[in-house]
Design a protein around this nucleic acid. Structure first.
Lengths: 247, 247
DNA sequence: GGAGAATTTTGATCCACATCAACATTCCCA
DNA sequence: TGGGAATGTTGATGTGGATCAAAATTCTCC
């Protein structure tokens, strides 16, 4: 696997009214803003950036300056150990916020890599700080977004620390399904954007185990798998796999 | 293990100047505040709470209202699955902030349990929001604290997803040592406040494995163990265990 | 201060997942 | 559009850490 190149910044400032008519408004913005306030937000997000499959939005240790709202596409975030082992720490889709790891030390603490051609809204962090001092709902929203990231990671720790392989994969599929649903896509059929190896890295499993477990779920009639295409046939069954006795 | 009882709130408002002369000032507060601003902070933290060993500061699903700065003592945070399995998601000592998991959904997402008699400063969240709109350095500081929690959890995910038992325990000991150091305690000798089972839960290992690995480190001359007392004899050696070839 | 509970250590055995291997399929771009 | 690389599947075997067990030690609190 070759090191992803950094994406070029493409200023598409010309696009008017970035946030005000963005379809992701209720995913990534606070509600209850008046026209004036939304105008301010539009000015905050004055750049978008296209990121080609395999390229990074930011890389670990790079200076931190902006947050990135995923506008379209799909990302993974990864940590790399000195000896080369790497760990996928998350998968991120439209409406998700990237880069909050960089605030604490003023440099990024992971790599954010596009898994398909994608687009992000660049949110200069200084502007966000300023505006969230003015707009209470923005402050509140931003804090909630950070808090939810903490809670999400708690969940992954539970998964990695306490679940067996089948439970991990079931939890993973149900989580993906739920996130697609909340974005208006089908809950029961979707295409994976990541490889078996990336899923394995995220779940603390080897790719062979991921592949075998997919096959087993298929045999059991829980899902239909055809390469990257997943159909969830029995979501209650998947839920039963979670928290089921090892037997 | 019986369910920890909730701690009583003890208003010790009478104590003057909570923050302004707290020894943890540089751990838990922003720097660069003038006397006036520190006075404001003092008014934000108007309650402390004693938490007896085994009691909780808050429990999962409880309504969120405040953050808690650990003033003294030692805590664990835990998640519990429906089937009873539980996962320790962190250990927290003086200067650490607890409760940020609750902001996103307005209810707590884990349990915070004292591992020894402890004391926390209660920070009403609404007051913190208000003040951080006024005081830029407070806003900045709070965002950094949240971001660092995200990064800490990234690290745990790497540990749980990619490391073997010895590496996990070495990383754990080095991390504890570093945290004691930054609080002015000895880097090379300390007492564990948690049981082998709690360490195991945090590291995704069984208590027997934790115990065996401690013994092995002792045989290898890396550490001295006597129950909860740990002496680090060869921290370079411990670092070498991390990122060493399985062989 | 002593009895019972909780915690820790160590040994023997087991098993879930890793590893190694071979082949099939799909993707990608030259 | 074809060929090589990347990805995915499945089987055989190995092993790190889990599990089961028993005894030693240390708390805890009456």
């Amino acid at each position: 696997m070759s090191a992803p190149k950094l994406a070029r910044v493409i200023d598409i400032h010309a696009l008017k009214s970035a946030c005000s008519n963005c379809s992701l408004r209720e995913m990534c913005l606070p509600t209850g803003l008046n026209a004036d306030e939304i105008e301010k937000l539009d000015q905050m997000v004055y750049t978008r950036k296209r990121v080609k499959r395999g390229d990074s939005v930011y890389r670990s240790e790079e200076k931190f300056g902006s947050l990135y709202a995923v506008r379209s596409g799909f990302f993974k975030t990864t940590l790399v150990m000195e000896d080369g082992r790497d760990q996928v720490t998350g998968f991120h889709m439209a409406g998700d916020m990237l880069g909050m790891d960089g605030i604490g030390s003023d440099q990024h603490a992971c790599n954010a890599v596009a898994l398909e051609d994608s687009e992000v809204c660049v949110i200069p962090y200084g502007r966000l700080e300023e505006l969230s001092r003015e707009l209470y709902v923005l402050q509140q929203h931003f804090h909630k977004v950070m808090s939810r990231e903490i809670v999400r990671e708690h969940g992954v720790m539970l998964l990695l620390g306490s679940m067996r392989a089948e439970e991990r994969l079931a939890a993973f599929l149900l989580n993906l399904s739920q996130r697609f649903t909340s974005r208006g896509y089908s809950a029961s059929e979707f295409n994976l954007r990541m490889t078996r190896e990336e899923i394995g890295s995220y779940l603390g499993l080897k790719l062979e185990t991921v592949s075998r477990t997919f096959s087993k779920f298929q045999e059991d009639g829980l899902i239909g798998v055809q390469q990257k295409n997943i159909r969830i046939l029995d979501s209650e069954g998947l839920k039963r796999v979670l928290g089921r006795d090892p037997a």
